[in-house]
Design a protein around this nucleic acid. Sequence first.
DNA 1: CTGAAAGCGCTAACAT
DNA 2: ATGTTAGCGCTTTCAG
Lengths: 349, 349
Amino acid sequence: MSVHDARALPPTLADVAERAGVSRQTVSNAINNPDLLRPETLERVQDAIQVLGYLPNRAARHLRTRASHLIGLRMLPAQEFTANATMDRFVHALVEASREAGYHLLLFSGGPGKEETTAADLVRGYDDLLRSTAVDAFIVTDTYLGNPQTRWLSERRAPFVAFGRPWEDPDATHPWVDVDGAAGVALATGHLIERGHERIAWVGWAESSFIGQDRRAGWERAMAGAGRSIDGLAVGVADTVAAGREASAALLEEVRPSAIVCGSDTLAVGVLHTLADRGLHPGRDVAVVGFDDSQVAQVVPGGLTSVRQPLEQVALELVRALEALLAREPYDAAGTLLVPTLAVRGSSG
Amino acid sequence: MSVHDARALPPTLADVAERAGVSRQTVSNAINNPDLLRPETLERVQDAIQVLGYLPNRAARHLRTRASHLIGLRMLPAQEFTANATMDRFVHALVEASREAGYHLLLFSGGPGKEETTAADLVRGYDDLLRSTAVDAFIVTDTYLGNPQTRWLSERRAPFVAFGRPWEDPDATHPWVDVDGAAGVALATGHLIERGHERIAWVGWAESSFIGQDRRAGWERAMAGAGRSIDGLAVGVADTVAAGREASAALLEEVRPSAIVCGSDTLAVGVLHTLADRGLHPGRDVAVVGFDDSQVAQVVPGGLTSVRQPLEQVALELVRALEALLAREPYDAAGTLLVPTLAVRGSSG
DNA sequence: CTGAAAGCGCTAACAT
DNA sequence: ATGTTAGCGCTTTCAG
């Protein structure tokens, strides 16, 4: 690979054609339909491509084929710490997954500013990219916020796939991939039951979010499956460290659970604080499990056992769905539900 | 904003021109050189644009103007936790900053795989995007790895700006923005000195990285400025929690510092582990300061005081430099050094 | 199997 | 101040 001055214009099809002694379309065919060429010609063209370091001009190709090979992903402003970390891990996974499919990720941000957030503003970023034909499709991540994006994109018949179930709209027909939160929490709860815990409490979100309900359902299911009562063992609060701390303090006073399953690592960290306050040892005195396997779970003393979302797999499935969608191939499953794993660490014994 | 079927082709210049009763060029001028139009005509054209929901086709514009308005950013695979979190915060900031300048971020990933990492592989992503004219410029973040990117891009005369000083090549002429790690650590150390600490130890990286040396220099400078000896108070280890834990345990045995400044939050977490092991209270018995203001620093019980990089400002400066570069405007300063702040929490008293 | 012609949507350069 | 012409680099007809 020779060092080629980037200010000089890159070689074009015509340059390659001239060097190989063929016409431009033959070069085009060599790239897009190599089977059409006689092997001998093909090799000659490929040599020329190699020597010149030719790569098709994306703008020209995009203009002609109406395919940018770009996927739009909206980055929300920094949020609650656990949610953000998950998103960031997801972006990494997505970059890899889309690369293998020949796509690049185009990042854009929310509305025009924090001040006004009308319905139109909420979809502005999507709308602009769509109308300027900047991306081939979107990957939508914030389906749970109850915002109008998915519906708007559907109505507009814009190609997109979602990370997250269409909770509020069971009739939605777009492809989606989600992680089975209930299964993850059931896994965590089962793990604690196996370890002999009887009174396993739940500290989750107060907001009646679908995700929160889903995760809690996993705890209930596992408890019921083991014939355990859940009376007074559940509490719902805001998703903050302070709330987790207070809620767990009250639980320890009142129902004295031997283990606590949390709806998020944020809440679990709050529980760990409470244990520290009282000189209790996580895992020995009270077992604790979080959700999301954040960095905090990994470095906290002794480690925090946590449910880990298979984001790499989510990314892979999403890109696969997107490819099918853009190729107008029949898409067999509307939605895919992936099962998380449990990262077991000291806090569960 | 009417809901427009995205499968139908978006309106073009010609559509707007027809509706406004002008030529295509006039519409183009209305968008790019509105001053050339008579106010009356301009308004008519703008109305038509509004009604049709017209936005210029990016591929066509890109092809014609040779400007994609895309900035390439390479995402490295997940790394040590602190470094990753910083990168992710930076990406968020960059999305915002570039939006305001009319740019979007194009994410791409490292080499073709983990197996082979030849020199050519290391720049493959950059090379491909450059040759296919996919991006206008790059923002390079991993200048400290000693990899050939910056030099390669320079030789190739590809437009780029760097987050990070050209440590190894003082003759480099590309624009860069960096955070003054030494100043940050000096700030932290000064903070501890103010609080009356005499024996302030340093736990940093063993690897002779420039960044590590820079940060350590800040500690040395502050200590010297206050007339404190640093004899036996510095230790360099790998950037892991375990290493920070062991190093601090040894320090506490041998030189009994009253405060410990760390080269990273990772190391600081290790120090916190050691304190917990010995029943010591961070901030009361031994003060601890980290670097990077990671999420862990924020949620650890009592909180971890930490040096915070002004990444939002870094992003802003980088985009500003990039705009100047692409406009071939004179760039006054080759490099900009920004000063971090200190997020004070319980661990420093 | 290869080549010639047309055109994707836009803007730069030149007419008027 | 507005219109006309040409062409950015590519692929998709359609002929040979």
